[in-house]
Amino acid sequence: MASREPQAQMSQIQRQIQQDWANREYIEVITCSIKKISDFLNSFDVSCRSRLATLNERLSALERRVEYIEARVTKGETLS
């Protein structure tokens, strides 16, 4: 019995450690996933903002062109 008990304790500790390792691995996966998500969000944000910036640029150019064309085409808006 005496020999069995220590063996049983050892096996229980090992199990706990193994379980811990398993848990740690699981947590690691989750945290890695979280990192990936955050990375993705960051890259997505940056990419979105850069695209929006180019879009803003084009829109501004478009607005100016349209304004110019409007001024060119507009007639009869005279003083007094």
Partner: peptide, 10 residues
């Protein structure tokens, strides 16, 4: 203790 830590970590 290990389970405790794991739980808190989770």
């Amino acid at each position: 203790e290990l389970e405790c830590v794991t739980n808190s970590t989770l």
